[in-house]
Computed example of a mutant assay.
Amino acid sequence: MAAIYPDLAGRVVLVTGGASGIGEAIVRHFARQKSTVIFFDIKVEEGTQLAQELAGAGLAVHFQNVDLTDTAALRAGVVEARRAHGAISILINNAAHDERHPTEEMTPEYWDDRIGVNLKHQFFAAQAVLPDMKAAKAGVIINFGSVSWMAGQGGMAAYTASKSGVLGLTRSLARDYGPYNIRVNAIAPGWIMTKRQTEKWLTPEGEDELMRRQCLKRKLAPDEIAKFTVFLASEEASACTSQHYIVDGGWV
């Protein structure tokens, strides 16, 4: 049974990329805390189904179809969320896309797209919600990185470059907005066995290597990341900011 943090009840939480995978687990766990959860995604069918399921259970969960690589659409989505549900007090910058891309085949356009979906939107989502948090003199931003660059993973240079950049972004925002009592942290998940990962990337060879390198000799699930995310957003973590938390079962 996951912990309940009473201070999260009624808080307005925005989750990017919340329709599937780790994001879906995060949405479910904040909903369980009785938070008001808005999530952005381009997966309309999955997002609509998730919101309907949780709303049907009496939980305050709302889906918005937002393309995070379109900064104008992202900003408009935040305005709509604020108008409908109130000031945003917690931002979870979860959305990402780990498609492999050989360096020799990289184009400037594809590079910009990878940076857009994996790093740029985190900055502009934070920029959009910071006025709410500054006015409240409180807030939490959690940016999602990855252990891929720490593990020396190849085959997707733009992704690993983006995810290493999340750490610099996190520490800069934490320094600038700490005086407003806004906490900014990063989470770097390891290889989490979402449906996408198991269908696209998990092979017997890859699993064998993971079990050799990971301290915990088992697969990690999205709920394990979500539970840590909820803890880090709660007042139980009130002194935690400007940090990079690796949640990978001891892989790196």
Rank of each mutant, 00 (worst) to 15 (best):
G165V: 10
D67M: 08
Q214A: 09
L68M: 14
Q49F: 03
E53P: 00
V27N: 02
I92W: 09
E45Y: 01
D41K: 00
R196P: 03
F63H: 03
N94L: 12
I246F: 01
P108I: 09
T160L: 11
R83K: 14
L173T: 00
S238C: 12
K219G: 03
E236C: 02
R196C: 11
A60R: 14
D248L: 00
I182L: 07
V44L: 13
S162W: 02
A161L: 12
Y5E: 14
A136F: 04
D112L: 12
A73I: 07
R175S: 10
L167R: 09
K163M: 06
A135G: 12
P204K: 11
V37K: 01
F30S: 06
V166D: 11
A186W: 06
K219L: 15
S146R: 11
I115V: 15
N181Q: 13
D67Q: 13
A51F: 06
P179C: 14
T194H: 04
A125D: 02
T170M: 10
A135V: 13
N93I: 05
D112N: 13
Q122I: 03
T160K: 11
I115Q: 14
V66K: 01
F40N: 04
A125P: 07
T36S: 01
E109D: 15
M156L: 15
D223Y: 04
S238R: 15
L216Q: 10
G249W: 00
D70E: 15
P179T: 06
V252L: 00
F123S: 05
G155H: 01
T103C: 12
L74R: 00
A136Y: 04
K34L: 13
I92F: 08
S20Y: 13
M133R: 08
L210S: 04
D113Y: 14
